[in-house]
Amino acid sequence: MSGSDARPFDVAESSSLRVLWVLLPLLAVLGVGIWSQLHDSRTDAPWMEVTLSPPFFLMSGSAAWSLAVIVLMGVGLGWAFFRRRVELADNVLDVRSTLYRRRTPVADLLLDQAEVVDLGRDRRYGIRFKTNGYSMPGFYSGHFRLQGGGKGFALVTDRARTLVIPVRGGSTLLLSLERPQALLEALRKVAATAPRQ
């Protein structure tokens, strides 16, 4: 396989409404910021003021910059929620998930131990807590600690059908795919044809 013929694998569908777990709190802060700006008119405002309550910082008595930052955060995090891709190219499995990316050579994958599991029932691979990730109910992206004790890199949109691939000397990959067996077969085919090191 060359870089020009990267083979994508479809990520399992996830409800688009899950993005509201990110957007609704930001919209609430935005609303409070606008309300406080409209109800607090000060003429003797300093050039810049930082507060612990919304809108958090003011410039020349205006919350416009603070509100603009909140809007940009909402757009960025909303965009990141929909950034999901799994590709196999140049003997490397490339997983892109929200703000994270993991490129793993096929030679480092322990394919004989790979399996499709239900994370809700399998205690070895259940997600325990996030170390550097992006998560909400039913959606996990990034780096996590697993209930079985190891580390994992997750792109999980369907806990009931997750392809688990242990990695030699690294974090276990947890991937929710429409056809997890198709990726596993493709990886095994690449591993069988790759030159031995």
Rank of each mutant, 00 (worst) to 15 (best):
A64M: 09
L17F: 14
S60W: 15
S41C: 01
M48I: 15
M1I: 08
S176V: 06
D44F: 08
S141N: 02
G142D: 05
I34F: 14
S53N: 05
G148I: 06
G76A: 13
V190D: 11
V164I: 04
R124S: 15
R84P: 00
R83S: 06
D108Y: 05
T157N: 03
S60C: 03
A191K: 13
S135K: 08
F81E: 05
D40I: 06
A114V: 08
T104Y: 05
Q113V: 04
L72T: 11
W47T: 15
D10Q: 14
F129C: 04
S36Q: 13
L77Y: 12
L119T: 05
E13G: 11
K151E: 10
Q147V: 07
G3W: 14
V29S: 02
D112P: 00
Q181S: 10
F153G: 03
L30R: 09
V95I: 13
I70M: 12
R168F: 13
A154P: 00
A63D: 10
F56G: 05
G150M: 03
L52G: 15
Y134K: 01
D118N: 11
F153D: 03
R196A: 14
D158G: 00
R188N: 13
T131V: 15
A154N: 01
R42G: 08
D122F: 10
R103S: 13
A107C: 01
V29T: 11
D94K: 10
H143S: 09
A182N: 01
L38Q: 15
G126K: 01
K130Q: 14
G149H: 02
G120M: 06
M73V: 15
S60H: 15
S14M: 07
S60T: 12
P105H: 11
G170P: 00
V75T: 09
R103M: 09
N132H: 12
V29L: 15
A160H: 03
A64T: 15
S16P: 04
S97V: 14
S97A: 14
L184D: 11
V71D: 07
V69L: 13
Y140D: 10
V86I: 05
F153A: 06
R85S: 12
D158I: 03
T172F: 04
R168C: 00
E115L: 02
T172M: 01
L187H: 06
S14E: 06
A186K: 00
Y125G: 05
S62L: 09
E178H: 09
V92I: 14
T98R: 02
